[in-house]
Design a protein around this nucleic acid. Structure first.
Lengths: 203, 203
DNA sequence: ACCTGAACACCGTTCAAGT
DNA sequence: ACCTGAACACCGTTCAAGT
């Protein structure tokens, strides 16, 4: 044994990430373990630690793939609306749909809490930023009447809000009797916010 | 050994929850373990399983305490504003402050993801509902012009939104250059939403 | 250089046996 | 009835040793 050299370092990396994605999709965040990953790719645990720093590192790299996947999903479903409100609503609905169809992967995206002064990598933050970029793009017409920086701020506020609605729904913190669907809630949010934002000169 | 009878079942329950609260506050969600809890209260692990169903059960009961604690915190900081906007803003700022000062406990509140058809207990949902109740109360003046059900829906949408802003900030999914503080973001959210909601008859 | 396998220090959960 | 302690089936991570 030892020195099999069947796969390059990079091949092992992508085999691990493929296997991790599959395990998370099927069993959720908690189903992921180093030993399960190792046996899925037919190597021993030790090998994982030659390619990744630790299990958190693997989780964060899977998350980066999920962010890319989600970006593609959202991008494919945006851009064909005529008003910022419609564009944003389409994006928000696509986000809700993604969170529902990819619930386990989507949940893992936010489960990792950087602790003790740790921060997310620049790469990770870039990929998060790209998603916010889609929101900004859908609000682009507003830059006729507002500064670019204002529109950027609105994009972040609205997207974080849409995210909050989505998260509390998925994690069952909002299933009261007579509650609206997530879609109806983001509709209410976007309609009223944009009406208020558009009419703010009247004050 | 065995049959010590030093403490009643209920005493053991509250000793465990006290110890769990302390461990979570100091070391976070991941620092909590059955063995650590058992040694903190000077019993063996087996005893925990006579009082609680499992570790998730303990987590959920700690969360219910946190929800009560947070409710008290929020209630103590609300109600003295003159307009719904000011009242809501005060509540949102109190929520942000709670999430920052009690970060580990607050994070655990949302980490538990009910999976495989599980649902949160009625007690748990009642305590979540109580927090939403505070938001509804601060929006009460709006019922002059809108139905109670509409105001309830607005309360839920706005609170989920405030929560989303808070969560993405705490978990570092929004630290871009030039970003607003969480407080400034909720301000922007509430101002524009309520302006839009108040002016909706004009359409 | 690459990979193994065993070791270390942990886990959650169960349950026969002791008093 | 109450509690123990040992067992079972797992963990993440490290690293000397083998080829």
């Amino acid at each position: 044994m030892a020195r099999r050299n069947d796969h390059s370092r990079e091949e092992i990396r992508s085999m691990v990430l493929d296997a991790a994605e599959k395990i998370v999709a099927e069993e959720g965040f908690k189903g992921l373990s180093a030993r399960k990953l190792a046996s899925a790719i037919d190597y021993t645990v030790g090998t994982l630690y030659h390619v990744f720093a630790n299990l958190d590192d693997i989780v964060l790299q899977v998350n980066q793939r999920t962010l890319d996947d989600m970006y593609d999903w959202l991008a494919a479903r945006s851009g064909k609306a005529s008003t910022p409100g419609d564009a944003l609503l389409a994006l928000a609905k696509a986000y809700i749909a993604y969170s529902e169809t990819q619930a386990n992967r989507w949940n893992m995206l936010f489960d990792y809490v950087p602790g003790n002064g740790n921060t997310l990598s620049d790469d990770y933050r870039l990929k998060v930023g790209r998603v916010f970029g889609l929101v900004e793009a859908s609000l682009a017409p507003l830059t006729n009447r507002n500064s670019a920086i204002e529109v950027q701020q609105v994009a972040r506020v609205l997207w974080a809000s849409v995210h909050g609605i989505c998260m509390l729904k998925i994690r069952q913190r909002m299933d009261f009797v007579g509650g609206l669907s997530a879609e109806a809630m983001v509709h209410l949010l976007i309609d009223n916010f944009l009406r208020g934002f558009g009419g703010k000169e009247a004050e």
